[in-house]
Computed example of a mutant assay.
Amino acid sequence: MTLAAPVVAIMQPYFLPYMGYFQLAATADKFVIYDNIKYTKKGWINRNRLLANGEESIFSLPIQKASDSAPIGERELAGSFERTKLLNQFRGAYTHAPAFADFFPVLCVIVEFPDNNLFRFLCHSIQQIFNYLEIRAPLITSSSLSVDPEARGEKRVIATCLDLGAKTYINPIGGLELYSARAFEAAGMTLKFLRHVPRRYPQKSVNFIANLSIADVLMSVPRREAQNMIQKDYELI
Rank of each mutant, 00 (worst) to 15 (best):
A4N: 06
A4L: 08
V7W: 02
V7C: 10
V8F: 08
Y14N: 15
M19R: 12
F22V: 12
A25V: 13
A25N: 07
A25G: 14
A25I: 12
T27M: 13
T27S: 13
A28G: 14
A28M: 09
I33W: 02
G43A: 12
W44T: 10
I45N: 01
N46E: 06
N53T: 13
I58G: 03
L61A: 10
P62N: 12
Q64M: 10
S67V: 00
G73M: 05
E74Q: 07
L86K: 13
Q89W: 01
F90R: 12
G92F: 03
A97N: 10
A97E: 09
A101D: 15
F104V: 06
L107S: 05
V109P: 01
E112F: 03
F113E: 00
D115Q: 01
N116Y: 04
N116H: 04
F121E: 03
L122S: 08
H124V: 06
I126A: 01
I126E: 00
Q127N: 10
I129V: 15
I129Y: 02
N131G: 05
I135A: 09
I135V: 14
R136Q: 07
A137F: 03
T141S: 06
S142I: 06
S143K: 06
L145C: 07
P149E: 05
E154M: 01
E154W: 02
V157A: 07
A159N: 11
L162K: 15
D163I: 01
G165P: 12
A166T: 12
K167T: 13
Y169N: 13
Y169T: 13
N171K: 09
N171A: 11
L176D: 00
L178F: 09
L178V: 02
S180A: 04
A186V: 01
G188K: 09
G188I: 14
M189Q: 08
T190C: 08
H196D: 11
H196M: 11
V197P: 00
P202H: 05
V206Y: 07
A210M: 10
N211Q: 13
L212P: 06
S213T: 15
I214L: 09
V217W: 02
M219F: 15
P222Y: 10
P222S: 13
E225L: 12
A226V: 11
Q227F: 03
I230F: 05
Y234C: 09
